[in-house]
Write a protein that binds this DNA or RNA. Structure first.
Lengths: 230, 230
DNA sequence: TTGGTTTAATGTTAATTAAGGTTAAAAAGA
DNA sequence: TCTTTTTAACCTTAATTAACATTAAACCAA
């Protein structure tokens, strides 16, 4: 049987060396990367069985790398290493869909348990990603039930209304959606005040989505909107 | 696994050298061209996996090169590098059709993400052009759902009514279209006021289309219009 | 028939109105 | 207290209406 291939991204070289050697002594094949910017080509070349990513990296955080990896490969398990200072919320947002996380400091046993766990789950054919829950919207990925919108540079937790509106827009992308329909779906009626409310949320989403210039919420005055995605 | 081959067209030699070496250190094979006129032979010889083109080049702009490359190869991903001074809309207008673009200055991470992204999209067999959405109208190209009309010199965002009218005219080009039919399609009825409204929009479109002398919206009094495109 | 005149249709431009955008502050939840 | 949602105020833009100009078909007289 081939060795399990681990892609390990860690900027603390001292810690990294220990972990790498420790895993190798347990018959894993480990490729370590200390620079977040170089991960994708290495990933493509190695095609690892599992990724272990430190969240705090000099140029690029682990979440961003993760969502890039996810675009290349929607199923490979990803394990985050987080310092205890990170907010729980965002980490949790990412700790689904084949992702797991371990708080630093951790023991080798713990890491190995998580790795084996991830591999086992994947082997059993348990869907690692609840794929339909994660929408690719342009350069963003949007976890609907977690209400997390992740771009290259920032990860944002959306409120309920923001998230629902984005979902509606996405489901009807490239088509004209009636203002009234959105209002009825989001507020249950289309009174004047809710109508102005919708304007506010449209503005918010536009600003959240501006990392990708190709994403556009076009206003069709007197009618509604059209969300153009590609 | 073979290295990913990148054709990189860039006239700023200093920047180019940095980018080239940076990509090479990340296991890409890079061929750099500084002169736009020589790109096609190089393309043929290299048969790259992805092209990265600076838009502002001395003799020939990146868009022109891109369309030449497209003739040789309709699917290879093309990424444009554009200066930040170019207006958003210009970029938007041209960045349609499966290509991506990056604003200068950019980070290496960003470039790599885009490259990997482009390769992945191609692998998945995702269609690179949403061709049916882009109409060629004389010297203009018209992106219907984005409501963007791009000529050589200016790119204009059309309003919904302008855009719909242009679409109707184009779909019935070189034929006589009844005024009434347009009115019914655009406003749902043909009352007097809407009728005057149509006049206004016809005037607007005529002025938008005057970059190309061969395009003409001919009035047929008492009947309707004929949009002559050839 | 020809050239002028009338008249309705359409062209053009500007003013008005209404829809929506943006931002901030207030209110409501949690 | 902190976040989300709603309300409010003011700003921008598209769509409509209005006013006046031009065109071309229709009519008419010499």
């Amino acid at each position: 049987m081939n060795k399990t291939k681990v892609l390990y991204v860690e900027d603390e070289l001292f810690l990294g060396k220990i972990v790498k050697e420790s895993l190798e002594s347990r018959h894993y094949e480990v490729v370590m990367e200390s620079d977040g910017t170089n991960v994708l080509p290495v990933f493509r070349q190695l095609n690892p069985d599992v990724c272990v990513l430190d969240v705090m990296l000099p140029h690029k955080d682990g979440f961003t790398i993760a969502s890039e990896i996810r675009e290349l490969n929607p199923t490979v398990p990803i394990i985050f290493l987080t310092a205890k200072t990170q907010t729980d919320d965002l980490v949790k947002g990412f700790s689904i869909g084949g992702n797991d996380y371990i708080r630093k400091p951790f023991s080798m046993e713990e890491l190995i348990v998580r790795i084996e766990n991830a591999l086992r789950i994947r082997q059993q054919g348990v869907p690692v990603t609840n794929a339909k829950d994660i929408l690719q919207i342009g350069k963003y990925s949007f976890h609907v039930t977690r209400q997390v919108l992740s771009g290259y540079h920032e990860v944002r937790k959306l409120s309920f209304r923001e998230s629902e509106l984005l979902k509606i827009l996405y489901e009807n992308r490239d088509r004209i959606i009636d203002r009234k329909d959105i209002l009825n779906l989001l507020w249950g009626n289309d009174s004047f005040f809710n109508s102005r409310n919708l304007d506010v949320y449209i503005t918010k989403l536009r600003s959240y989505l501006k990392e990708d210039d190709l994403l556009e919420i076009i206003t069709i005055k007197g009618v509604g909107y059209r969300f153009v995605t590609g």
